[in-house]
Every structure is written in structure tokens, then in C-alpha cells.
Amino acid sequence: MSTELVIIDSARKRGYADDDLLHVIAKAIRVIVQSDGMTMYIGPDRAGRIIEVGTIQRNGREIVAHAMYPAREKYLAEKPRRRRR
């Protein structure tokens, strides 16, 4: 079963295009599953900038709720974890 991906306004508040957010998720160099249930994807946008994109799971959907450039050091320094889907 594939998960529906939904982008909400909080992820867009810094002006990122939906295609950039999806690119980060698809090309992530690091995926961190946090204890609060958010999964952080660290990777390049379409211009090659390393940004962080945060998602949460709700009712069978993966919701993109956060995006920020530059990716914070605490995520760049984390050990990579397996991607869950």
C-alpha cells in the first residue's frame, strides 16, 4: 500500500515550491525518525541546496508539515537511519 503525500501550508510558509519539497523526500541523503513522530528528510532541493523537510503520519497519509533552509546542524550531524515508508 502506498502512502498518500499531502503538503500543508506550514511547509510552504518559507516559499518553497512543492516540487522542491518532494525532491528532498525522493533524494534524501539522511532520514531521521524523531521521538515526537516527525520524520525529517535532509537532502537537496532542485537547485542543490540542502534543506530539511519534516513529515508526520496521519490516517494513512504522510503530511509534509515543515521545511527549512539551511538544514540545521543537528540533523546534518545525526547518524542516518533507515527510511520508513
Rank of each mutant, 00 (worst) to 15 (best):
A47Y: 12
I56V: 15
D18T: 03
V53T: 03
A65S: 11
E78N: 05
L76E: 00
A28C: 09
T39H: 06
G43M: 01
A71V: 00
H23M: 03
K13H: 13
M1D: 13
R58V: 09
V6T: 13
E78R: 10
D45F: 00
H23K: 04
M38T: 15
E78D: 09
E62P: 01
H23Q: 06
R14L: 14
V64N: 06
Y41E: 00
K79Y: 09
D20F: 13
A26V: 05
S2T: 14
G43K: 01
R84W: 08
E52A: 06
G54Q: 08
D36T: 12
E73Q: 09
Y41V: 02
I32F: 15
A26R: 10
E73N: 11
R61Q: 13
A65P: 07
S2L: 12
R84S: 14
Q57N: 13
S35H: 14
I63G: 02
E78Q: 07
R46D: 01
A71E: 02
V64Y: 04
V33P: 12
A26T: 07
D20S: 10
T55F: 11
A77Y: 13
K13C: 10
S2V: 06
Q57Y: 11
S10Y: 08
Y69C: 01
V64E: 07
V31W: 07
P70Q: 04
T55C: 15
I50E: 02
A17G: 04
D20T: 09
V6S: 09
Q34W: 07
D18K: 08
E52K: 04
Q34T: 12
D19Y: 03
I56N: 03
T55Y: 09
V24M: 02
T3P: 05
I56Y: 12
E62Y: 07
A26H: 08
P44I: 04
D36G: 06
V31H: 01
A17H: 09
S2N: 12
I29H: 15
H23P: 01
I56K: 14
T3L: 14
Q57H: 10
Q34L: 15
I51E: 01
A28Y: 06
E62C: 12
R30T: 07
Y16E: 03
A17Q: 11
R72I: 03
Q34A: 12
D20M: 10
I50A: 03
R81W: 08
S2C: 08
I63T: 05
E52C: 00
A67F: 09
L76I: 05
R72Y: 10
D9F: 08
M38C: 14
A67Q: 01
D18Y: 02
D45W: 00
I56G: 05
R85P: 08
R82K: 13
I25M: 15
A67K: 01
L22P: 02
N59W: 10
R84T: 10
T39F: 01
